[in-house]
């Protein structure tokens, strides 16, 4: 499976030549990774200290993106903010894949009453807009980036449960699984050897879109003042705090928003490419 992913990665790079539209997404993602890894070398200033007497300054040589409401360098905050974004992406992806696959497998492979109950719950949860689930979780747990991650995972989880369950049900009816069972293979072994590798593609595709959703949700919750706490350089929080100075200092809101948009756009664009490659059932997912 890893080999397959690697091959897809290589193909992706090769396809840049055929598809120039991929240049932007790939360079944005690379830039994001580089910024996150080398934030302290790239950022010209501190992201948490500022000069109150030099606040809301327009872009200049010293501050290419200007300064914010506390006189902090906006560029430096965006650079450090990439760490927040990546952290959110990675944790949300990990937890939703692992938990979602586990629950989905349980429902799909074991079946029976467990399946009925889980499917019913997932149906109900999916009828509630994801934003509301995230808001409810935040209301219970309180503010903070870690809680935001929990909120997003809980909002995303039903998608995975439903996806994995449906894949597993198809997969377990297949001949080779039946054959292994007949040969006396253990359930867990069947899952590991036969089922997981065959359903990994769609899950990876779904995970890409989860990455995009995670960035958007974190930004949205922070924008509502319910997510990251100051002075975390969360892009959404930066937008929230700059909102009131819109009229006199638009630059403070423009740049963090662009950062969110470019990141999400790039992830989505790559996700679509991946989907074309890995998931033959692309059409179904469009819903």
């Amino acid at each position: 499976m890893i080999q397959r992913l690697g091959a897809v990665g290589l193909e992706l790079v090769a396809s840049v030549r055929r598809d120039p539209l991929l240049v932007l997404p790939l360079s944005v993602i690379s830039a994001l990774l580089i910024m996150a890894l080398f934030a302290s070398y790239i950022a010209p200033h501190s992201y948490e200290r500022g000069d109150l007497l030099a606040r809301l300054q327009p872009p200049s040589r010293e501050h290419p993106f200007g300064t914010d409401h506390l006189g902090r360098d906006v560029l430096s905050r965006i650079v450090y903010g990439s760490r927040v974004t990546l952290m959110v992406i990675l944790t949300v992806m990990t937890f939703s894949i692992v938990l979602g696959t586990a629950i989905g497998l349980a429902a799909g492979y074991v079946g029976g009453t467990l399946d009925v109950v889980l499917s019913r719950v997932v149906d109900v949860v999916m009828s509630i807009p994801a934003v509301l689930i995230a808001l409810a979780v935040v209301a219970v747990l309180g503010q903070g980036l870690d809680r935001v991650v929990v909120a997003i995972v809980l909002a995303e989880l039903p998608l995975y449960v439903r996806l994995v369950r449906s894949l597993v049900i198809v997969e377990k009816e297949k001949l080779y699984v039946e054959a292994s069972k007949a040969l006396g293979a253990e359930g867990l072994r069947i899952v590991r050897v036969h089922i997981l590798p065959n359903i990994a593609g769609p899950i990876v595709v779904q995970a890409t879109f989860t990455a995009a959703t995670a960035v958007l949700f974190e930004a949205a919750l922070s924008f509502l003042g319910l997510g990251a706490e100051p002075p975390t350089p969360s892009w959404g929080l930066m937008l929230y705090e700059s909102k009131q100075y819109f009229r006199i200092a638009p630059h403070v809101a423009v740049f963090p928003g662009l950062a969110i948009f470019l990141t999400v756009f790039s992830i989505n664009a790559l996700g679509e490419k991946l989907r074309d490659r890995l998931d033959p059932r692309a059409r179904a997912l469009l819903k």
Partner: peptide, 29 residues
């Protein structure tokens, strides 16, 4: 937040100053 002139920013600034002493401030609005 939204009660006094610039209350949120003042709180943020105070946090910034106190943290400059090497203390940690957990700020909740």
């Amino acid at each position: 937040q939204g009660r006094y002139l610039k209350d949120r920013e003042i709180a943020e600034a105070v946090k910034m100053y106190i943290e400059a002493l090497g203390l940690k401030v957990r700020l909740e609005f």
